[in-house]
């Protein structure tokens, strides 16, 4: 690796002041699973590393009045072991478990996964399907934006070079919403998604209510399949309707062909995975309702 200077930030405010001092030649280091690869093999001109892996205000998982706040440097392993996430947003656990392997899940963070912003990120779809927001700290203080507005393109976010991600907030009304994450990769371990999907809904009088469908690895960023959502809303969760929803989602996506899979294959995967995730989510909803009646 070419030489650089490392500054250890004690909290997010300290990190921002270090970024202000050294931007744009400074970069944030959290888990390092992406950044170290970039530092070894990339061509970015960074010569200052702001290490937030010890920042005190970025590693909590907290239920607040607003919802569930997950600190930016919470690791994928932390997510898998969190009782509150298991209770309120278990799809995040499936997503975290699908990432890399134990060693990279022990280091890699949810904030890093979002900020690296590769289209195949596994943390994105479930959070996007739950309408998550992100808190950003910059020189002027904190601001909040919808997660969808963080994503700009492959490896590109909307953050300024002097801003950092503080936490991800899942709104209260979506905690406990039936949501299923499915990933299709070429292997179980150490594999990027060819397609990943998070889809969920509630059932109201036998009709689908508030369906949300998010897709990864099939567009420049993780996206919501809005036309598919609009089609399914208010319809019965029949096999035919779920298949049609999957078909519409596949049309909305813009997958590319690469050495892992062709665009056509990815479209087929979207249709199958969206229908499968919705089927599972609806089954979960019915079970919960039956339990409530009992």
């Amino acid at each position: 690796m070419r030489p650089f200077q490392v500054y250890v930030a004690k909290d997010s405010e300290h990190a921002v002041s270090l970024l202000c001092e050294h931007a744009p030649r400074a970069v944030i280091l959290a888990g390092g699973t992406d950044l170290l690869v970039d530092l070894k093999h990339g061509s970015k001109p960074w010569d200052v590393i702001v290490d937030i892996s010890r920042a005190e205000d970025l590693n909590a998982i907290t239920l607040t009045g607003e919802g569930l706040a997950i600190g930016a440097r919470v690791t994928h392993t932390d997510i898998m072991r969190s009782p509150v996430i298991r209770e309120s947003a278990p799809a995040l656990i499936d997503a975290a478990h699908s990432i890399g392997a134990v060693q990279t899940r022990n280091l890699g963070t949810i904030g890093g996964n979002l900020m690296t912003c590769v289209p195949s990120m596994d943390s994105g779809p479930a959070l996007l399907a739950l309408d998550a927001g992100v808190t950003i700290r910059g020189p002027e203080g904190l601001r909040r934006l919808p997660l969808a507005e963080l994503f700009v393109g492959p490896r590109k976010t909307s953050l300024a070079p002097t801003e950092i991600l503080v936490d991800i907030v899942i709104p209260k009304h979506n905690l406990g919403k039936p949501l299923v994450f499915l990933k299709f990769g070429l292997r179980k371990g150490q594999a990027l998604a060819l397609v990943n999907v998070a889809a969920g809904c509630r059932l109201n009088g036998g009709k689908v209510w508030e369906p949300t469908i998010a897709l990864g690895a099939v567009a420049p960023t993780v996206i919501r399949a809005q036309a598919a959502e609009a089609y399914l809303a208010g319809r019965a969760p029949s096999e035919q309707n779920l298949s049609e929803t999957g078909r519409i989602a596949a049309q909305e996506a813009k997958p590319i062909s690469d050495f892992r899979a062709s665009a056509d294959y990815r479209r087929d995967l979207i249709a199958v995975l969206v229908a499968r995730a919705l089927r599972q989510a609806c089954a979960g909803t019915e079970i919960e309702q039956a339990e409530m009646i009992a």
């Binding site: 490392v6 250890v8 280091l29 888990g31 390092g32 699973t33 170290l36 690869v37 590393i49 290490d51 892996s53 392993t77 134990v102 060693q103 990279t104 022990n106 280091l107």
Partner: peptide
């Protein structure tokens, strides 16, 4: 206590 890739961690970390 956690297994990690030593190639992905800076010594300072």
């Amino acid at each position: 206590g956690a297994a990690v890739n030593a190639c992905l961690m800076l010594a300072v970390q």
